[in-house]
Structure formats: C-alpha cells, structure tokens
C-alpha cells in the first residue's frame, strides 16, 4: 500500500541536508519536551518536597519544590499511622489479579471481535463498548447489594471479581487487533494454523505494546480505587493502600506533610511498575521489530 520510492539519490540528498538541520530540530524537540515534562511533573515534585517539610512549612502556601528543611522522620510517622505492609500486600494481590484478568479477558474478546466470524458480532461489540458508557456512580448501590448477596462483603473477591472485565480494555485491544493486517490471518489459516495458535503466536506479539498498556491501565485503575474498597471492606485486614490516605484530614485542617508522605509512599510502586512495564514494551519492540 505504500508507494515505492526507489531513488537512492533522494535518500543521500536527505542525509546531507539533514545533518545540521536535524540536529537543530532535535535540540528544539528536546527542549520543548523536557520543559513540558517538567511542567507535567511539577505537582509530583511538589508532593515529594512537601512530604519532607515540617508541619509549619508544609502549610505555608507556595509551589516551591525544594524543602526549607528536611524531615525524613515524617515517613516514619506516616508508616506507623496505618498498617501499610498489610495494605500493600492486599493491594498487590488485588491489582495484580485484576490486571492479569483484564488483560486476558480483553485479549480474548478483542481477538474474537476482529478475526472471527459469528452471528451477532456487531451486538457483541456494542455490548462490550456499551459497558464503558455506564457511569460507576449510577450502578454503585446495586453493585454493592449484589456483592453482599454473593457473600463477598469484606473479602478480596469483592475487590477483584467485579473488575475483571471492562469495556475500555476490550475496545482498546480490538482497535489494536484491527491494525494487524487481515492477510496474515488468511495466510496463516491457509497454512493450517489454528485460530488460537494464530492469536498467541502471531497476533499477540504484534499488539504487545497495547497489551501492556491495557494491563498497566487495569493495574492502575484497581490500584488507585479508593471508594469501592472503602465501602465493601469492613476492617483493616482487607483494606488497600489508598485507605491510608484518608486518616490525615482533621475537621480543622489537613496534616499536609504526612498526607503527602502517604501519597508518595502509595504512588512509588505504580511509578516503578510503569518504568518496568515500559522497558518490557520497548524491549519487545526491539526484538520483534514490527514489520509492515
């Protein structure tokens, strides 16, 4: 489908011309991107710096990101304020399971919606996508009633099972599979390759970046949820880390430095996870070298 441009001459001309201009362009690109990145990260930096300040400094208004004095003991105090190890364990169990389950259910559904022929395909797609149009606030109470009827109140099941599929992920995976040329599928089938084998051997490696994005989003969605876990759990042994953020607001003010400590503690794992996932994505890119 791409036009063939055979001319070696033009390539050389581009190289010659590009040397200097490309360097300049790259410089501006870097400058623009890094200043943008700084702007985007500012609240994050502010959070960390505030977490290290004393109470009086923390409530002093301002957007500086360099603490006036360093109070590492804040982290100790915060860590003691809630049973964080327990919370982290629960959170990782919940978010890890949800992430894996969502990735699986979305991959299977997305694949079927693109490559398989069956009646009611359009309806199935509409149902999958339609699910993401239902506002959570609207189904919150019925869902809670359902979960308690199922006997899942105050259990990790309530935090996991109802979140194992969502419209966003199915939709995202379907769009990624759409980008895989259908000719591959036909060729593979002609060669006698089974449909499932095609999915795991050919299609999945091709959509790996999107798959990891799906998994990361599912993980983050579960990791950052506060309200649902707070409502369906009854005691500390089933609680998740986000709950640890709720204990620093008094009726007369916020213990800002401790709140920011807790926010930093809670956020670090997800940043690390994102960095790791990103490495995995770009490594597979290098290795497979998607061919068009």
């Amino acid at each position: 489908m791409n036009r063939k441009i055979p001319v070696a001459l033009s390539r050389m001309a581009w190289l010659r011309r590009g040397r200097t201009r490309r360097g300049g362009r790259q410089f501006w690109l870097y400058l623009g991107l890094s200043s943008g990145a700084l702007l985007f990260c500012w609240p994050f930096l502010w959070m960390i710096s505030t977490s290290l300040e004393s109470f009086e400094d923390a409530v002093t208004p301002g957007l500086g990101v360099w603490p006036a004095s360093w109070h590492w003991e804040n982290y100790l105090e915060t860590w003691r304020s809630s049973p964080f190890p327990r919370y982290f364990l629960n959170t990782f169990i919940v978010a890890g399971t949800v992430s894996a389950a969502v990735a699986l259910s979305a991959t299977l559904a997305g694949y079927a919606l693109v490559f398989l022929h069956f009646p009611g395909k359009k309806l199935a797609f509409m149902l999958a996508v339609g699910a993401m149009m239902v506002p959570f606030e609207a189904i919150f109470i019925p869902n809670f009633v359902l979960v308690t009827r199922l006997g899942w109140y105050n259990s990790l099941a309530a935090l996991i099972i109802s979140w194992c599929a969502n419209g966003f992920s199915i939709f995202l995976m379907r769009q990624a599979f759409l980008a895989v040329p259908f000719e591959y599928y036909e060729a593979a089938r002609l060669d006698g390759c089974g449909s499932l084998r095609f999915l795991f051997r050919v299609a999945l490696p091709l959509v790996r970046p999107t798959l990891s994005v799906t998994a990361v989003f599912a993980f983050l969605g579960s990791y950052n949820a506060l309200l649902w876990p707070l409502i369906v759990t009854a005691d500390g042994s089933r609680r998740v880390v986000q709950v640890g953020l709720t204990v620093f607001t008094t009726e007369s003010g916020v213990q800002l430095h401790l709140l920011m400590c807790a926010a930093t503690i809670v956020m670090l794992p997800s940043v690390l996870l994102f960095l790791l996932a990103q490495r995995a994505v770009s490594d597979t890119m290098m290795a497979t070298g998607v061919k068009g």
């Binding site: 694949y111 239902v134 019925p142």
Partner: peptide
Amino acid sequence: RERALAGVLLSPALLLLFIFTYFPM
C-alpha cells in the same frame, strides 16, 4: 467451530459485564 470458539472467547468478558454492569444498570 469458529462460532463456538467466538462464544468461548467472548463469554468471560460479556458475562462479567452483564452481571456487574448491565444488571446493576
């Protein structure tokens, strides 16, 4: 066989969506 496969692949997702999204809706 393809239809059956489609059913198997779609059912986990659709079933969950049905129970925890459409029914509450």
